[in-house]
């Protein structure tokens, strides 16, 4: 297991409401999706849940697991400390149990969106929306622009090599 990300980077990942997930389509072209990121500090893995209503990205990842994730919007990071972070990594889609496997991430989800419970109670209203695959991203290379200063050189962390 690689060493954990620096705490200040983990803080950004844990407290971001939106991240841009970029996948590669069948023609080798990047496709980007704004999504809610869920970072598990214990496993150092980044998760997204994707409804099968918006399943193109799942097909793309299955074909090509290389992805990147960008956290660069100060307003969407609910933390006093902010750094712009972009990570490249390998993703996998977990979709054998679309109905309930993603609920294991509810703890992380609730921390960011506590009102999610009220939406869950209305699951019958949008049954397909709540059939969700998990996208698990294992960070490989992480670029950090301290304090979001894009004019400075980013710190590059290669997870396999340590830092």
């Amino acid at each position: 297991m690689p060493p954990p990300l620096p705490p200040e980077v983990s803080e950004v990942l844990e407290n971001s409401l939106v991240a841009i997930l970029t996948v590669v389509n069948e023609r080798g072209v990047p496709v980007s999706h704004p999504m809610l990121p869920l970072f598990d500090r214990e496993t150092q893995l980044l998760y997204f849940t994707s409804s099968i209503l918006f399943s193109k990205k799942l097909r793309h990842i299955k074909r090509n697991p290389r992805v990147s994730v960008l956290f660069s919007h100060r307003e969407y990071v609910r933390s006093d400390n902010y750094h712009a972070v972009m990570l490249k990594g390998d993703a996998r889609v977990i979709d054998e149990d679309l109905s309930s496997a993603w609920t294991r991430l509810l703890g992380l989800w609730r921390r960011k969106e506590p009102y999610i419970e009220s939406y869950l109670k209305q699951r019958y209203a949008f049954p397909l929306f709540w059939e969700r695959a998990i996208i698990e991203v294992r960070p490989k290379t992480v670029y950090v622009w301290p304090n979001g200063d894009l004019g400075s050189e980013p710190t590059i962390i290669r997870m396999e090599e340590g830092y």
Partner: peptide, 21 residues
Amino acid sequence: FEQFALSFIDEDGYPASIPVT
């Protein structure tokens, strides 16, 4: 919109997303 990101396939074959002005 207030902020923008540019996504492309980087030299290592991974997609990259970078904040841009």
